[in-house]
Amino acid sequence: MVDPMSSGTGETDVRPAKQPLGAWRDYGEPELPIPLAAALEAFAEQGYHGTSVREIAARANLSVPGLYHHYPSKQSLLQGLLERTMTDLLARSEAAILEAGPEPVKQFDAVVESLLRFHMYRREQAFVGSTEIRSLDDDYRPKYIGHRDRQQRMVDEIVFAGVEAGDFTTEYPKDAARAVATMCVGVSTWFKLDGLLGPDELISRNLQLARALVGYRTN
């Protein structure tokens, strides 16, 4: 579970309540406040710098002063959106790993599936998070990078544990772990829920690729 958001972004504690087993696989519509949902739509379509506060307010059916009542700046909207994105991602990854139990192979399969599902079902949020890091103010950027590093460490630690246990044969566990995470994140740039490749088939294919990257020992 990540820490609550720092003050100044218009957000309060957004940590989710404890979820039942398997809930990390469950996705409905993103539960975003109306201003953040409007900002997400605009940022995904036009980019942060191509979007005005007035346009976000219009999409949210608010006046500009009304929007500022909730979020004092366009930057606070971006930060609030990315903080919620990372809170959700990290919580799902941690839940998946915990449910998998202590075996590195099962943990690996679980975290890969979780990352893939997130980048399919939260595609726009993940896309904005990946492309707009350059737009973050200096006071928040280190925190956001810290969230991303925390997610990468989860994958790193599992791959190193798998190598130590003899389950994975890669000679380059750090590089393999980063390649696995990059592959999962990349799904947000091309996957469509109504496309020819369904979520379960994508997970099956990419799990095979991820296992190949770490040198999964089949016998």
Rank of each mutant, 00 (worst) to 15 (best):
D3P: 00
S6W: 14
G8C: 06
G8A: 05
T9M: 07
E11I: 15
D13P: 05
D13C: 10
R15I: 09
Q19I: 11
G22N: 10
D26W: 04
E29P: 10
P30M: 02
L32K: 09
P35T: 02
L36H: 03
L36E: 01
A37K: 11
A38M: 06
A38E: 06
A39N: 05
A39P: 00
L40K: 08
L40I: 04
E41Q: 13
A44F: 07
Q46G: 12
R54E: 12
A60R: 06
S63N: 04
H69N: 09
H69S: 09
Q75C: 00
G80L: 09
L81W: 12
L81C: 07
R84Q: 14
R84H: 10
R84S: 06
T85D: 15
D88G: 01
D88Y: 03
L89C: 01
L90Q: 08
S93L: 13
A100K: 00
V105E: 15
V111K: 00
V111D: 02
V112N: 02
R117F: 02
F118H: 14
M120W: 04
S130Q: 11
R134K: 11
S135Q: 08
S135L: 13
D137Q: 13
D137L: 14
P142I: 07
G146Q: 09
R153C: 01
V155S: 04
E157M: 10
A161T: 03
E164Y: 01
A165H: 03
T169H: 06
Y172T: 15
P173G: 07
K174L: 15
A176R: 01
V180E: 03
C184W: 05
C184K: 05
V185P: 02
V185F: 10
V187H: 02
D194L: 12
P199G: 04
D200S: 13
